[in-house]
Structure formats: C-alpha cells, structure tokens
Design a binder for these strands. Structure first.
Length: 273
DNA sequence: AACAAGACCTGCATGC
DNA sequence: TGCATGCAGGTCTTGT
C-alpha cells in the first residue's frame, strides 16, 4: 500500500493530533510483524511525550521526550489510526497506545509486513533498516549526476532500480510506473542504456509525481487511509498504474502490463521508449 | 558481486 | 455454495 506520498500524508494527518501528547498506556496484541516487536516495547514507550514526527523514505519516526525514537513502517497493508479511547479493538489492531486527551494511536496491519521498533534517538540512524536506504528523491541535495551514476552502472531494468530503496528511497510500485510514464522511458530499459540527458527529466518526473500525490493525499487503491481514516485521491490521476488495456491519456494507445521480478509494471508502448 | 527468486502474511476478486 | 488460483501499495533472506 503505502509509498512515500502515503506515508507523508499519514505523517501530516498525525502531527496536529499527536504532537505534545503523552503515551499513557500501550498494549501489544500481536508482536509478530516483519520483525517481532520486542517484549519491552510497551514499557519503554509509556510515559514519554511525542515531541515530533518525521519521515525517512517510507518510515515514520516518532521522537519521544526521554530521548527514544519510535520507528514505524506500514508494509503493504498497515495503517496508523487515531481513535477516541474506549472503542473495542478491531481485527488486526496489533498495537494500541493510549494517549493523553482520550485518544488512541493504533497500528492495524492485516498482512503484518509492517514494523514497529524503538531505539535511542542517537542510534536510530544506525538501525539496519535505515542504514540501507539511499537518497530521498525529494532531497534537493540529490543531483542528476548522482542518480545517473547509480543507474548507469547497472544492467538491471530501470523499474527495478527505482524500486531498490538503496538507489532511491521512498518510491514504490505505483510511483515507479507513474514516473517512468511521465519521463517517457520504458520500465524494461536497462540502467546502462539510460542516457545522462534522460536522467534530469526522470528525476524531475519522480519529484513531480511524488509532490502531486502528496498534495492529493496519496493514492487509495482499496484500503489506504490517513491517520484520520480519510482516503487519498491520486488514484484518479493514474496514467499508467493499474490501467492495462485502457487508452493512454496522452496518445490513446493501449496501456500494457508486464511483470518484472514478480511485480506488475504498466507503460504506454507509444509514449515510452 | 550483482542479481532474481522465494518467503513472509491476509484478503479480495475471479472462475470453475 | 465452496474451493482453487492469482494478485495486492514492501522488504528480507536465500540461492545462482
């Protein structure tokens, strides 16, 4: 489900509701996520105030008052929801945190590909999950030359490179297809066949599609919701993703689907070369 | 070393 | 109706 724009939307929806509140109680109902939630998780976060919420790629970082940092990833199907206290837990509510102000922060994740961890703030950057990550595409410090360097030395398909979080951190299956559509490059093109002159427009396309998706509140395919339970609307603007068999919005040609290392890619055979 | 395949999960749509 | 199959926004581990 959630890629960079959805996570950023969740972050923004949580900010005004959570920052300044203290965690009064925490219940771990199911600890078997991508990695098991450690046994001391609840005891460790209780009593701490949420001072800030930041994002690194598809990860959310909750900065806590006693110097800890809670790291959350939503996997494919995860949601962080804010609710009034006293409601019965729903199916797949794995962690419930009661906060001051009679609200609860709930991690709900049917497929359990998500992650919840806590570390000292000064040590979060050393966590293996974060250490593997490449540059954030929205980081203005990321240059065309740097992106070209990591793309051009590989023979893998460009779509797979965009999905590789060590190359670019935050792009997922939807926005990889959408960005390649805008850049006019086929998802199957090998990295070493991409020219330097194509990388500036590619990076521009990636940034534009992510920014527009954030402005639209993300994409809701079936179940993505922000912290307030609201869906996004960017799925209405897809040009490629999930549009196999439908006419290209630019030229009318039929959009195609191909499978690359087990994942669907969508492209216009006329607009994309 | 660089890559793809498989594994991890549940839920939903489709087709028989 | 029930059952089997395939697919889904991600990432980690295994094997070639």
């Amino acid at each position: 489900m959630p890629e960079l724009p959805e996570i950023e939307t969740v972050r923004r929806s949580l900010l005004p509701r959570l920052v300044g509140r203290r965690i009064e109680a925490a219940v771990v109902r199911e600890r078997r996520l991508r990695r098991p939630i450690p046994p001391d998780f609840a005891a460790r976060v209780v009593g701490q105030r949420i001072e800030a919420i930041s994002r690194r790629a598809k990860y959310l970082l909750f900065h806590l008052s006693r110097g800890d940092c809670m790291l959350a990833h939503l996997g494919m199907s995860g949601a962080l929801l804010v609710r009034a206290t006293g409601k019965a837990p729903q199916c797949h509510d794995h962690v419930c945190m009661r906060l001051t102000g009679r609200i609860e922060l709930v991690l709900n994740d049917p497929r359990r590909f998500g992650l919840l961890a806590v570390a000292r703030a000064e040590a979060v950057a050393e966590l293996p999950e974060l250490q593997r990550l490449g540059p954030d595409p929205l980081d203005p410090g990321l240059s065309t030359a740097a992106l070209y360097a990591s793309i051009h030395r590989s023979r893998r398909a460009l779509k797979n490179l965009l999905l590789d979080q060590a190359v670019l951190a935050g792009v997922g299956n939807i926005y990889a297809s959408e960005a390649l559509f805008r850049a006019g490059i086929r998802p199957t093109r090998r990295g070493n066949r991409v020219r330097l002159a194509e990388v500036a427009p590619l990076l521009q396309a990636i940034r534009a599609v992510l920014a527009e998706a954030i402005a639209a509140g993300g994409s809701s395919i079936s179940d993505y919701r922000d912290g307030n339970g609201r869906p996004g609307s960017f799925q209405l603007r897809f040009c490629a993703y999930d549009r196999a068999g439908q006419p290209c919005r630019k030229c009318g040609a039929v959009i195609r689907r191909v499978v690359q290392t087990g994942r669907s890619s969508f492209y216009c055979p006329a607009c994309q070369r």
